[in-house]
Design a protein around this nucleic acid. Structure first.
Lengths: 207, 207
DNA sequence: TTGACGAGACGGTGCGTATCGTTTCGCGTA
DNA sequence: TACGCGAAACGATACGCACCGTCTCGTCAA
């Protein structure tokens, strides 16, 4: 394996990096993932394309970092400064807490700034296993862990049966919403996610 | 809108059509969706590429028809001849019936002949709304309708609460399995799908 | 002084279209 | 039923174009 001499990241141009992020996100939104090209990103960012190839291996990775950066900006705007809030709030009412987080997710899924890049990253991950693992690890898994913790807390208070696997339980809420979004197989609304929580906690069979 | 003179489908070469399906499926399996090209499919099929462009608008549509054709072959092999069986069996035990169908779905998801093309079609649909609608309508929706019918039958026998929306209820089984497969976020086993059915029917909260 | 930078040249590949003969098939006639 | 004609699909391949990923300039900033 021949390794390129690693570029010196201390000398990296922050301005170019930001311009590349902006250009990548804009292009994916405007012309779609398939039609955005590295040459196009470079031209739009006012950057030599070698600068992109120096720091990223593919357009998918450019977009992933651009998206992570965008997400960070939004997170800081929502929960300002260092006192960022982590975890799903625990008011003692599991159903209400879950409905609240899912409503936030609905908002995000409907935000046009997120739509195109999210779809691009998802699509690339479906077909490219290595990249998919990265998307899961850096984007999705941290979110899922929040559900696991909240459900474990609910098991201690008796709101969820102790024999339930939280890792599977969370999928009953999250996966249907994800599928509706991915496959466009139904409307994405608060009413829908509220219903999901009710069905999953209460079960489909009569009590 | 200028419309090309539509080709005469009665004169279409059946041999070329089959060769193109085979080549497309083989290439997607061997080199991946991104790297399969129309020129590659044509060369492998021993066909002029104009023959592909004459009948299909994109490589995604070629693959969709190839996959539908493949699915038909399998369906005929499983339920031979004209007496094809439709619908989810109704033994009166909803949980058992659902577990059985989901096990069949697990088998299909793990079949290497299906994996690569399914992922390709899914990925393309995520990013290309028009194409996604086609995949849903021709591939997914017919399957989902079977669940709706079986759940409605279960409502009549009292196995499912009458106020439940079957369209949403089915997502509690199907979507988690789909997400695990799409995102590779956990193992796909009979034990897993069995658990999904138990959780969804019984609910997460104590009874 | 050194290495990232913007710019752009380079050969290579696949795109989608156009245009070769060639082959196949439907249809009218013997 | 057998034959022959014409039209259209066929395999092959050339075309211009866009983008790929690499390489090499001269410039500029740390």
């Amino acid at each position: 394996m021949v390794q390129k001499p690693a570029p010196d990241s201390t000398r990296r141009s922050e301005k170019s990096r930001r311009a590349i992020y902006d250009a990548a996100l804009a292009l994916v939104g405007e012309v779609g993932y398939t039609k955005t090209t590295i040459e196009g990103i470079a031209a739009r960012a006012g950057v030599g394309k070698q600068t992109i190839y120096r720091w990223w291996p593919s357009k998918a990775e450019v977009l992933l970092e651009a998206f992570l950066d965008l997400s960070e900006q939004f997170a800081e705007a929502a929960a300002p400064e260092e006192q960022a809030e982590y975890g799903i709030p625990d008011t003692g009412d599991l159903a209400a807490d879950l409905k609240n987080v899912l409503r936030l997710t609905v908002d995000e899924l409907l935000d046009p700034r997120f739509e195109a890049p999210s779809r691009a990253l998802t699509a690339e991950g479906v077909v490219n296993e290595q990249f998919g693992a990265q998307v899961i690890a850096r984007l999705l898994e941290p979110q899922l862990q929040l559900y696991v913790r909240r459900l474990e807390a609910a098991q201690e208070t008796g709101e969820v049966r102790p024999d339930i696997d939280p890792r599977i339980a969370l999928e009953l809420f999250v996966a249907p919403l994800a599928q509706r979004w991915i496959q466009r197989t139904g409307p994405i609304t608060y009413a829908y996610t509220d219903t999901l929580v009710d069905y999953a906690l209460g079960g489909l069979a009569p009590r």
